[in-house]
């Protein structure tokens, strides 16, 4: 089946099995290796991408279902001012250690902040509740998102 969508702003067409995982298409066909595979079953968030602005797990998304959608991976997001605000805040707060979970957390933060630019701590924890981190213990990540949200006029 031919499937059309945009990835990081570029229109693309793939001719592939529509049941293929969006994760595999993004990594193997497009080389977006910032999309990670952790659990492969919707439990960890390492494979998170934005589909039409909403956070989605690409490991359980058949590529055929994103026909006509706009997909954003960390590679596309990193060219934005918002990314730079999150990057700086995460660095300052110690929200990154090994980094495997980080693209997923950054996109979860974006999905949250675009709907709710001034989240409470509970709302931040809820916003990242689909993501697991084996290193930081989460406090640094939560702190980082809090700090990012304080950046003037970015969200």
């Amino acid at each position: 089946m031919k499937i059309k969508f945009t990835v990081n702003g570029r229109p693309e067409t793939v001719d592939t099995d529509p049941m293929r995982r969006l994760l595999d298409v993004l990594r193997d066909d497009f080389g977006f290796l910032g999309v990670k595979e952790g659990c492969g079953e919707g439990e960890c968030g390492a494979c998170s991408v934005l589909v039409n602005g909403e956070i989605v797990f690409s490991c359980i998304t058949p590529v055929g279902t994103v026909e006509g959608s706009e997909i954003l991976t960390i590679e596309g997001y990193r060219n934005t001012e918002r990314y730079r605000a999150i990057e700086a805040a995460m660095e300052e707060a110690g929200g990154v250690q090994c980094g495997f979970c980080t693209p997923g957390f950054v996109l979860a933060a974006e999905a949250l902040l675009r709907k709710n630019p001034h989240p409470s701590e509970d709302e931040i924890r809820e916003g990242i509740s689909g993501n697991l981190c084996r290193c930081t213990g989460y406090s640094g990540i939560v702190e980082g998102i809090k700090k990012a949200a304080e950046s003037e006029g970015v969200w």
């Binding site: 049941m19 293929r20 995982r21 595999d24 490991c59 058949p62 279902t65």
Partner: peptide, 26 residues
């Protein structure tokens, strides 16, 4: 697909295969 993709998942990189035709309705 949040139930089906987990039910029919295979090892990393392989395409989930329910063994019958699939009808997208979402």
């Amino acid at each position: 697909g949040t139930d089906l993709m987990v039910r029919y998942r295979k090892t990393a990189g392989l395409v989930p295969d329910p063994g019958r035709p699939v009808l997208f309705i979402g």
